[in-house]
């Protein structure tokens, strides 16, 4: 991962001070690095170890070393692949919709002068709201007993959560509502980096709005867009809260995170559950690697997302 470094302080090489600075630098970052590794690397290694056993918490006596069998079971199970497909579907739909919507939002926020504060405040509310709250709000809006959506759109008694695609639709809506603000702010930062001179030059050349969008604006924002998409993709792939609240994974709306949770926490099947966790982690790594190698995402554009 290519990360842009801060400019080096002036004239600090090879002196005693440089050595001291280097030591100080390491000392200062050490706590952060140690804590980050302790809270992630240790549990991950533990999961890797547990995944080699058939081990049920309520049946400790039945613990047994099974090597890679858990992985074979998972990869040979259609439920795993169905959940992967569901997760990817949700990820792709939400990221694409959010990108288009977020770009529109960014354009508006970029241009607006009067009422800028109002727009920003309102857009930040979904960003800051608890995902579980968002999930409940959307669930109650679409539910047969408490909802108003069917009433408004004359849908009589359509059971939104009774069928796979309509349930996924509501899950995606909640997810999109909650996370578009994030993507739109990243894009707003990207928009601000498009040189105004180029826009003006294109205007002088008689380019239409669309031409300027595709020839000037978007190419100059490529880095920001890719970073936003990478962040949101990895985030969407972990989707859990909305599914838990809305369907509990029924009607084939289960995501990979939910599957791992169920094996691990509900069934207390620590072996099998750990194996799912490891595979989930590997698939996140794979997606990240694809983006960074495939699209050449420049992470120096990333600003503390």
């Amino acid at each position: 991962m290519n990360v842009e470094a801060a400019p080096a302080p002036v004239g600090a090489k090879y002196s005693d001070r440089a050595v001291g600075e280097r030591r100080l630098g390491w000392k200062l970052v050490a706590p952060a690095v140690l804590v980050m590794l302790a809270v992630t690397a240790y549990p991950m290694l533990n999961a890797l170890y547990l995944s080699l056993f058939s081990y049920r918490l309520t049946d400790p006596a039945g613990r047994e070393f099974v090597g890679l069998r858990n992985y074979a079971v998972i990869l040979g199970d259609s439920l795993w692949w169905q959940d992967v497909a569901t997760t990817l579907t949700i990820t792709i739909i939400t990221v694409v919709v959010e990108l288009v919507l977020g770009f529109g939002f960014a354009m508006v926020m970029h241009r607006i002068i009067f009422g800028r504060r109002g727009v920003r405040v309102s857009i930040l509310i979904p960003y800051g709201i608890i995902t579980v709250v968002s999930a409940f709000a959307w669930r109650y809006a679409f539910a047969l007993d408490s909802g108003f959506v069917n009433q408004w759109f004359n849908l009589a008694d359509k059971a939104w959560f009774g069928e796979r695609w309509s349930a996924l639709f509501v899950i995606c809506l909640s997810e999109i509502w909650k996370t578009t603000p994030f993507i739109s702010l990243l894009l707003l930062a990207g928009l601000a980096q498009v040189p105004e001179v180029l826009q003006e030059a294109a205007k002088v050349d008689g380019a239409t709005w669309w031409q300027r969008l595709f020839k000037v604006t978007l190419p100059n924002m490529k880095a920001a867009i890719l970073v936003a998409v990478l962040f949101r993709t990895l985030d969407a792939y972990r989707l859990f809260d909305n599914v838990f609240i809305m369907t509990s994974g029924a009607q084939q709306t289960e995501t990979v995170s939910f599957l791992a949770y169920r094996q691990m926490i509900s069934r207390t099947a620590l072996g099998l559950g750990s194996a799912v966790s490891v595979l989930l982690f590997l698939s996140v790594l794979l997606i990240a690697a694809l983006f960074i190698k495939g699209f050449k995402v420049d992470l120096s554009q990333v600003r503390g997302g």
Binding site: V3, M36, Y237, S257, I265, S274, F281
Partner: peptide, 20 residues
Amino acid sequence: SIALAIAMFPAVSLVGPLFN
């Protein structure tokens, strides 16, 4: 880079071992 990788970590992956 480590910080970025860890920020992207799926929380569910950590939950089982942490619970245990």
